[in-house]
Design a protein around this nucleic acid. Structure first.
Length: 482
RNA sequence: GGCGCUAUCGUCUAGGGGUUAGGACGUGAGAUUCUCAAUCUCAAAACCCGGGUUCGAUUCCCGGUAGCGCUACCA
């Protein structure tokens, strides 16, 4: 059996976005499934738009997603000589010719073209005689190399995802292979590399579906064997437009910054256009590798739904073991600028994380609604005060509760709950009133984990202090009755 | 405009000549409760339109429509 070789070939003109990430993922999944080779190639032949620093960012994102490559990264900018030699070769065999038209001339002709038909290169230089060509070359007129597309016939191929695709050659124009500055265009470099790197399956976005016939012509001119092609439907924004900056977060890095776990993003992306035979939604990486198959990849574009990603993230977050979660939370708190004094011990930190974990949807939730668990500097949320601090007897109740709790010898949830409920009953108020008010006192929030678990992770001293601080806040200058 | 591709709940999708058209996210209601989340139960929610083929089309074929892609000396 031939060894499967696939590649992911981003161009460093932007960060890795979710569409590119899914393309990379499907390549990777297929390679791992087939026990093949996954190659990374950087398509940086557009010197104007490529930014070297973005390459590092793309690599970083791929690593974060866990998509490891077996060969590369190769840079097309290192292979310029090869493309030039190939362009010359294709000219020699008569499949390409030098074109002396300047971009300005072409632009002028294009804008002059009457509506209806799309403007196709008019073949001005294709029709030059050999002496005319030699003369211009001798004069030092810069030229691009254009591929000579057959004027009749059709070009077709079997796409692994989309099936039979065909186009009339007359719909294709003589496209440029090599620019007048000696830089190759995509159509040349992509084919040259895929041939040289012995790529067996070209897996890429469906935006390349219409380009494929042109490239097939180049393969044939080179006398190379065709790889299999598998095009992937595009990922769209909520407005069904192709995902772009307008849609907010589209880069992999942005999701990492939002507290999304890489395994959740990978799982979500995998399911955007593909369903495993069993239809499972939560699919471990090994299962994805085992089940992945282009035959079951969808042909229609998919809208990226951040809500479902968030849900999936919560699933992964909840299932994450503490050994992995704790460091992630530490990093999150650090990046959020917390100068954490609490929890005091690693064990306590661990306990706090475990308490917060079941209700977190993203890593951000550890720094955002849970401030009071990690620092004493927190405010009482307005909505929380409004909802649970209305009762005028509260200052007294909280003060007295502090007294009771302070006297406890053991401070586990059972004892604190018993104490609080007993206290409420004696005071002739509903336990809920005290519990909810205490929650605000301890966390500053109307929403938090179970109160007695909160007390546990905060500890007795801090619980009592916060209760007194709240009483003070509600009824300053110690006017609260005992 | 030309060419190409696509079309099942709001979204991701399963399915497929005869089904109560299934699941998931989201949404609504209820249960539970110290808040919220979680959980459980229930509910609303789809085969783009028109022709064929057929005893019977959401499924197959054709056309239309819509969406997306390509239409560069970008990739």
């Amino acid at each position: 059996m031939t060894n499967i070789r696939v590649r992911f070939a981003p161009s460093p003109t932007g960060y890795l976005h979710v569409g590119g990430a899914r393309t990379a993922l499907y390549n990777w999944l297929f390679a791992r499934h087939m026990n093949g080779v996954f190659i990374l190639r950087i398509e940086d032949t557009d010197a104007d738009r490529s930014r070297p620093e973005l390459t590092a960012a793309i690599l970083e994102s791929l690593k974060w997603l866990g998509l490891d490559w077996d060969e590369g990264p190769f840079h097309q900018s290192d292979r310029l000589d090869r493309y030039r030699a190939l362009a010359a070769e294709i000219q020699q065999t008569g499949h390409a010719y030098p074109c002396f038209c300047t971009p300005e001339e072409l632009q002028a002709k294009r804008s002059l073209a009457t509506g209806g038909r799309p403007w196709k290169y008019d073949g001005t230089c294709r029709n030059l005689t050999e002496p005319e060509r030699q003369k211009r070359i001798a004069e030092g007129i810069p030229y691009a190399v254009r591929f000579h597309v057959p004027e009749t016939g059709e070009t077709s191929f079997e796409d692994t995802v989309f099936g039979h695709i065909k186009v009339e050659n007359q719909e294709l124009e003589d496209f440029v292979l090599l620019r007048s500055d000696g830089q190759p265009t995509y159509h040349l470099s992509v084919v040259a590399d895929d041939v040289d790197m012995r790529i067996t399956h070209v897996v890429r976005g469906a935006d390349h579906l219409s380009n494929t016939p042109k490239q097939i012509l180049v393969y044939r001119a080179m006398g190379a064997t065709l790889p299999a092609f598998a095009h992937l439907p595009l990922i769209l924004g909520p407005d069904k437009q192709r995902l772009s900056k307008r849609h907010g977060a589209t880069s992999v890095g942005a999701y990492r910054d939002q507290g999304i776990l890489p395994e959740a993003l990978v799982n979500f992306l995998a399911l955007l256009g593909w369903t495993p035979p069993g239809g499972e939604e939560i699919l471990p990486r090994e299962a994805m590798v085992r089940e992945f198959d282009f035959a079951t990849v969808s042909k229609s574009n998919a809208v990226f739904d951040p809500e479902k990603l968030a849900w999936m993230n919560s699933q992964y977050l909840r299932a994450l073991n503490l050994e992995r979660l704790v460091p992630l939370v530490e990093a999150e708190l650090k990046s959020a600028g917390f100068d954490s004094t609490i929890p005091a011990s690693p064990e306590q930190f661990r306990e706090t994380v475990a308490l917060l974990q079941p209700r977190a949807r993203t890593l951000k939730d550890f720094s955002q609604g849970s401030r009071a668990f990690f620092t004493d500097e927190f405010d009482y949320a307005a909505d929380a005060q409004k909802k649970f601090w209305k009762d005028p007897s509260l200052p007294g109740l909280l003060g007295n509760l502090a007294e009771r709790l302070e006297k406890l010898d053991s401070f586990n949830p059972e004892d604190t709950e018993k104490t609080l409920r007993g206290f409420a009953e004696e005071s002739g108020v509903k336990a809920g009133l005290v519990i909810n008010a205490t929650r605000v006192a301890l966390t500053g929030q109307a929403v938090a984990p179970g109160l007695f678990d909160v007390m546990k992770v905060l500890g007795q001293k801090r619980t009592v202090e916060r209760l007194r601080r709240a009483r003070e806040h509600l009824s300053p200058s110690g006017t609260a009755s005992v």
